[in-house]
Design a protein around this nucleic acid. Structure first.
Lengths: 242, 242
DNA sequence: CGCCTTCTTGATGCGGTTCAAGTAAAGTGG
DNA sequence: CCACTTTACTTGAACCGCATCAAGAAGGCG
């Protein structure tokens, strides 16, 4: 089991520093590493799993669904994101979490959250920061789904995920990043049908703005893609890693 | 200035208890009460106001907008909700906050959040709970906007806001609750045009399911309204009030 | 009184859904 | 190893939910 001091995520450029004591404490709370296959349900909707996890490797997403099967993906989770905090705070998880790729989770003790707040206030604040940061991403998705056209949503999504993946250290030598979402996932994230998602994506491909095949996203013209999304860069905030 | 010990919100049935010490500490942090008129911008998008507020009286909402003026309301804020925590944690507020009615805000010191985490871990956990709870509401809006029909969204919204307003102690003797949103606001919340919002609302009126006039919402047949929304009740969680 | 905001209703049309069919690739079991 | 299934993607055609444009009615308010 990987000790947190040696966590590869610490090397990422946007991570804040921790003291050796903090790192040691966190590492002591870590109970296990859980592997999951792509497509696995990590937390079911309404489940009462009281563990809390962080995503060490792989991609996942949060979602909610309706009785008749319609599903909305709330946001995409990348390495370093916290999983299941809501389920810990509320009694039952208000949303499900599913693995997009093979995934490794770091599992922490059930009452770690309380001890964290009691004994490590600065880490507790970091945890709240991470939670609020996740919320911010969901707010962006809501703005897209509610008020942007299908084309704008798609361009927006690709710009943002490209940036997140790149800053998670996933950029390949050829400039592409892994992109494990199927068109069905994109549709559920953008509030579109799978068919229309396909058509919009192909428009972007034909214009040479992006290439998306075999799970790799390459952006041909980032400037132009941003223009389609009507989006201008905001400075990325430095994040803590719990 | 109202001391927190005498805060009328404490009487609400879904509020958790605090110790006298906790209450006294919170009350000491309270700096001022700010009044705002209906329609005022409380926090502008991208602003760096580092104060943190709680909503004492009145209604407000969080929103994000696009360069061309399209706007998405993220959720509605009622008395007891925290305002501006994101702006405190991030450097600039990722969303705006606007008053729907006349509003009174309790303002707290800028560095109160840090002291709260350092000296009052259980209150800090409450604050994180409130933040996560707000997120949950936004997740519900996203599910509606992304995957429900206009009719379902409208029914859902009315059911949820009716319930929230009622449990905030706003229920009137005749069974109605105040409802200060204009149809324009509803449209921006549901991701619809104002015109279509009007038509959907009238369908519900003609079916006798709701009445909505002069800022008062009355639900004629809650069971039927829920059926339209395809929604079944989840138990309301007990909340802390900071 | 005139202006602004909100609500209302009709007419028209587009952006997106739905249905349907077909291709390609990747399991899966005999 | 080959039938069989399953999943992802693609494309066409028809339709409809909702947006948009336009115009009018009914308050509030300076």
């Amino acid at each position: 089991m990987l000790p947190c001091q040696a966590c590869p995520l610490r090397a990422l450029s946007d991570m804040r520093e921790f003291t050796p004591e903090q790192l040691a404490w966190i590492s002591r709370q870590k109970r296990a590493e859980y592997p999951h296959a792509a497509g696995d349900t990590i937390i079911a909707e309404g489940a009462t799993d009281e563990r809390i996890y962080t995503l060490l490797r792989g991609w996942a997403f949060r979602y909610k669904s309706l009785p008749d099967g319609r599903r909305q993906i709330l946001n995409v989770l990348l390495p370093g994101d916290v999983v299941g905090l809501q389920a810990e705070l509320m009694s039952a998880s208000p949303h499900g979490v599913e693995a997009l790729t093979e995934v490794t989770l770091c599992a922490f003790r059930r009452d770690m959250v309380w001890e964290l707040f009691r004994d490590h206030p600065s880490l507790a604040l970091d945890l709240t920061w991470l939670s609020a940061h996740g919320e911010r991403l969901t707010d962006d998705v809501l703005l897209s789904v509610g008020r942007r056209s299908a084309m704008e949503r798609m361009a927006m999504l690709l710009v943002l995920l490209y940036r997140r993946a790149a800053s998670s250290g996933l950029k390949r030598p050829d400039g592409g990043v892994p992109f494990p979402l199927t068109q069905g996932h994109i549709a559920d994230l953008l509030g579109l049908s799978a068919v229309h998602t396909n058509r919009v994506l192909q428009q972007l491909r034909r214009q040479g703005l992006v290439s998306l095949k075999e799970g790799v996203l390459t952006v041909g013209d980032l400037r132009a893609l941003r223009r389609v999304a009507d989006y201008w860069e905001q400075p990325a905030p430095r994040r803590p890693l719990l």
